[in-house]
């Protein structure tokens, strides 16, 4: 089981503090959702946890190793990261885009080993993209494109997945489809951390919720105990009515 933990993590952009004093430990084999209002520092925190930005203070440990000391390919084999930007610069085919997930293993769309090929096929299968293999990525719908990105993440076989707002611009059906993919990933032993803006979906699917506000983690725990009207009020500044773990309504505070 993959272990990712952060100790006293902070990051600044110039003089502005993006987040500070973050301590967390991801539950192995669980789906953790990071939620909080715009500008809370969620994306910055993710890039730090993914090892793409060096924190100003603190350390991130991945399976007992300091993340900043790991080589980029070593890190990528254990951790895959899906940024918010889903736009591809060139209209490459679906299978080529998924093959990029084998980068850390030396694979490229031009040259795939047998192991690479099997991993790509499996990932296409899981994400139900088999019929779209040869399609150019610029002809896909938003829902299909997001599955392509999950497939390329799964193709790398990393046991830890970090995704930044993977549901943006998806309709409810595709949102649920993506959440089921995540669920399946964790049921098979994967550990996932995702930023979500849809709080109802987060409460429905997450094993653990991380509540973030003004660059600080303010609460952490399963939806049953942390998805409360009080947290909704102090983190999102809204009046929420929650009944039996279900969001009934949201109103201006």
């Amino acid at each position: 089981m993959t272990q990712l933990s952060a100790d006293n993590l902070s990051l600044k952009a110039g003089q502005t503090e993006l987040f500070a004093k973050v301590n967390l430990s991801l539950a192995p084999g669980k789906l953790t959702c990071l939620i909080g209002p715009n500008g809370a520092g969620k994306s910055s925190l993710l890039t730090c946890l993914a090892g793409l930005k060096k924190p100003a203070t603190g350390t991130v440990m991945l399976n007992g190793q300091d993340l900043t000391g790991m080589s980029s390919t070593e890190r990528a084999k254990q951790l895959s990261y899906l940024p918010q930007n889903r736009q591809l610069s060139w209209p490459i085919s679906v299978e080529d885009a998924v093959a990029l997930g084998r980068f850390a293993y030396g694979g490229t769309p031009a040259r795939l080993s047998e192991a690479d090929r099997i991993a790509v096929d499996e990932a296409l299968d899981i994400c139900e993209l088999n019929g779209l293999r040869k399609r150019a990525t610029d002809t896909l719908s938003g829902g299909e494109l997001s599955r392509v990105h999950f497939a390329r993440a799964f193709a790398g076989k990393a046991p830890l997945l970090i995704a930044d707002e993977p549901l943006t611009a998806l309709d409810p059906k595709h949102q649920i489809r993506v959440m089921r993919l995540m669920q399946r990933f964790t049921e098979n032993g994967g550990t996932a951390l995702i930023v979500l803006h849809d709080i109802a979906l987060a409460a429905q699917f997450a094993d653990v919720l991380l509540w973030m506000r003004f660059g600080r983690l303010v609460d952490e725990g399963p939806p049953a105990s942390t998805f409360t009207e009080k947290n909704m009020s102090r983190v999102f500044e809204v009046d929420a009515r929650i009944d039996n773990g279900r969001l009934i309504s949201i109103a201006d505070a």
């Binding site: 990528a76 990261y81 899906l82 930007n85 591809l88 610069s89 885009a97 980068f103």
Partner: peptide, 13 residues
């Protein structure tokens, strides 16, 4: 790898 953008490419290793 850069087809996916700089951030994602960095994430790929």
């Amino acid at each position: 790898a850069l087809t996916l953008g700089e951030e994602a490419a960095a994430g790929l290793g």
